[in-house]
Amino acid sequence: MKKQPRSLWQRFAISLPYAWLVAFFLVPFLIVLKISFSQGAIALPPYRPVLDLTAGWQGIERFFTGLSFDNYRLLGSDPLYLLSYVKSLEIAAFSTLMLLVIGYPIAYGMARTPRRLQAVLVVLVMLPFWTSFLIRIYAWMNILQRDGPLNELLMTLHIVREPPVWLATDTAIYIGIVYSYLPFMVLPLYAVLEKLDESLLEAAADLGCPRWKTFWLVTLPLSSPGVLAGVLLCFIPIVGEFVIPDLLGGSRAPMIGQTIWMEFFGNKDWPTASAVAIVLVCLLVTPIVVFQHQAMRGGERS
């Protein structure tokens, strides 16, 4: 099979990143998987069983008989976890939809401006992404506080009489998410819309198709790869989001990222935190597999 033996350089270029990823990605993930089947213990590390290789075969046997599905049973029986998953998926789904509705007109407008201006606009949309995530959320804490500029504006315009409470609500979470993820939605949409062949739109117009119908029948279907990319780029990280709900939302109904954080740092229940994490990974892998399947089918068609 091999045409020539690999040079020392090639072997080095493969094995160094390979070894790094095995040590710091694969092995840690397997440890999480293992601990999710363990029981909590008041010890260090705070879980049982611990693999004891010095005890030989017996140690390995004791290790495997000690594993159990108890943590997963707990996830199913305690509504706290179920609600947490549902809330995360719900927030991710609605905010992705909002991002699409808000981001599409912006990307569409960008793609239609003169070329020279487009480059500037791309930098302008990307720039907030380079400033810290935490700082952008913190900026909204400033705006949404009780005597903050938003309430001041609403009061001066006589839209409300009493200053409404924004912080520690789901509304604040939605605002924070839409704000932080907008570049991730706009840029993939723009990348597709910018390449759109305008003669197709002209052809539709020449044949008497109204503009909204052209958009619906030509532009939107042709931009579907960008829509899919944007939706995935937003939906997946939003499900596991921690910082935004923690700083802007309340603690009564936590999202799943907060639940993992609390189980780990608050309750010191490492096995349960691990089980919650494993279920989350399984939830997130599904849309990615669907996407890959779609992408492969699309590749066959063209």
Binding site: R112, L121, L124, V125, P128, I135
Partner: peptide, 30 residues
């Protein structure tokens, strides 16, 4: 020739304002 409609400009201006206003407010408050 590309046509830029009022709606396009409106979307861009509003989008950029939304992205930058919170940061500007943060700097002013500092």
């Amino acid at each position: 020739m590309r046509k830029v409609s009022i709606f396009n400009i409106f979307a861009i201006v509003l989008g950029i304002a939304f992205l930058y206003l919170p940061i500007v407010i943060l700097v002013i408050y500092s």
